[in-house]
């Protein structure tokens, strides 16, 4: 599903990733760890063609991302749900409207009549704030809203970049449970985090592999947690 072949990435004369190769098959769950500034976010951004490698090839759904046009990148992203630590919303739209954005831009929904939308908001526990505006949400609610937005288009792949960075332990566990549940539904999940305790706590819940970025290279840190 996502494949890196000898990928390097440099910016401003500094090399962030050097000769990285990996493959994330359909339905897999991977943690991506490493110290701050190691290149986790860079790697994730290359997965949805926000950044292009300076060397090597990134293939997503079998397609070389460097060969994609602007519109093709847009269509690619409709099949990838992305959750960031600083989840960005359109503050003048309600939570429900924000969550529905991926369907709105694809021209395939009416927020108020979409049954999946109702179910999804209930599933992530945000039914009670669907008409609220993002600035009024707590950190945990914002992360769950970002996850709901990432899922509304039924993507095959979820990329989560430090989704638990701004929430407490209980909310982190709740978010992890949601990601694990999605993985059980067949979604491919790649989650960047530097919280090893959280990874260890999920040992009994998910068959996951841990990838570690260290000294600009990617290492398999552990398997079958």
């Amino acid at each position: 599903m996502i494949e890196f072949q000898n990928v390097s990435y440099s910016y401003g004369g500094a090399t962030l990733l050097n000769n990285v190769s990996m493959a994330l098959p359909q339905g897999s769950f991977h943690f991506l760890t490493g110290p701050s500034g190691a290149g986790k976010t860079t790697l994730i951004k290359m997965c949805y063609a926000e950044l292009q490698p300076t060397q090597g090839t990134v293939r997503v759904f079998g397609r070389d991302t460097s060969a994609l046009g602007r519109d093709e990148v847009s269509f690619l992203r409709r099949n990838i749900g992305v959750v960031h630590q600083d989840c960005q919303f359109l503050d003048h739209l309600t939570v429900a409207e924000n969550v529905a954005l991926p369907l709105t831009v694809a021209g395939s929904t009416n927020v108020r009549t979409d049954g999946n939308m109702e179910e999804l908001l209930a599933w992530v526990g945000l039914k009670h704030v669907e008409d609220a505006f993002p600035p009024s949400l707590s950190g945990g609610e914002r992360q769950r809203a970002a996850l709901a937005r990432a899922l509304i288009g039924a993507p095959d792949c979820i990329l989560a970049d430090e989704p638990t960075g701004n929430v407490d332990w209980d909310m982190s566990k709740r978010l992890m449970q949601l990601l694990v549940e999605l993985n059980r539904m067949g979604k491919t999940v790649l989650m960047a985090t530097h919280d090893m305790a959280l990874i260890r706590s999920m040992k009994s819940d998910v068959q996951a592999r841990v990838l570690r970025i260290q000294e600009k290279q990617l290492w398999l840190a552990g398997a079958d947690l």
Partner: peptide, 16 residues
């Protein structure tokens, strides 16, 4: 700028 970033992230075409 942030609105544009968000819209691109969720798959909006530049035309849209």
């Amino acid at each position: 700028h942030q609105v544009i970033q968000v819209m691109r992230l969720i798959g909006a075409r530049d035309h849209y």
